[in-house]
Deep mutational scan, measured.
Amino acid sequence: TYYTVKSGDTLNKIAAQYGVSVANLRSWNGISGDLIFVGQKLIVKKG
């Protein structure tokens, strides 16, 4: 599943929405910090 980042989104918010961990979101998307951008597509695997 792909999720497109919207204004106001955070990794924590997206992780909670999908029932996954922030660590997994980072791993699946090659993100090291907490910086995400509006319009960015993130890979999300269902929890």
Rank of each mutant, 00 (worst) to 15 (best):
G19Y: 08
I31A: 03
V38C: 06
K13E: 15
S27K: 14
N24K: 09
K41G: 07
S7D: 15
F37S: 11
T4R: 06
R26E: 07
S32G: 10
L25K: 00
N12G: 15
D34C: 10
S21F: 04
A15S: 12
V44D: 00
T1V: 14
L25V: 06
G30S: 12
V38T: 09
N24L: 11
K46E: 15
S32M: 14
G19E: 11
K46D: 15
N29D: 00
F37C: 09
S32E: 12
A23M: 09
V44T: 07
F37L: 11
L11P: 03
V44F: 05
S21C: 06
R26K: 13
R26F: 04
G19F: 08
A23K: 10
T4D: 07
G39C: 05
K46V: 15
L42T: 01
Q40K: 05
G8F: 06
L25R: 00
G39W: 03
S7M: 13
Q17D: 15
F37Q: 09
S27I: 12
V5P: 02
L42V: 08
T1L: 14
Y18C: 04
V5C: 05
L25H: 00
S7C: 06
K41Y: 09
G8M: 06
S32H: 15
L42R: 00
I31E: 03
Y18H: 13
Y3P: 01
V22H: 04
G30F: 11
N24V: 12
Y3W: 04
A15T: 02
F37A: 09
A23Y: 06
I31W: 04
I31S: 03
T1E: 15
K45E: 12
G39S: 05
N24W: 09
T10Q: 06
I31D: 03
F37P: 04
G30N: 13
K41L: 15
N29H: 01
K13L: 12
V5D: 00
V20L: 08
S32L: 13
G33P: 03
L25S: 00
N24A: 10
G19R: 08
F37M: 10
K46Q: 15
I31Q: 03
S21L: 07
K13S: 15
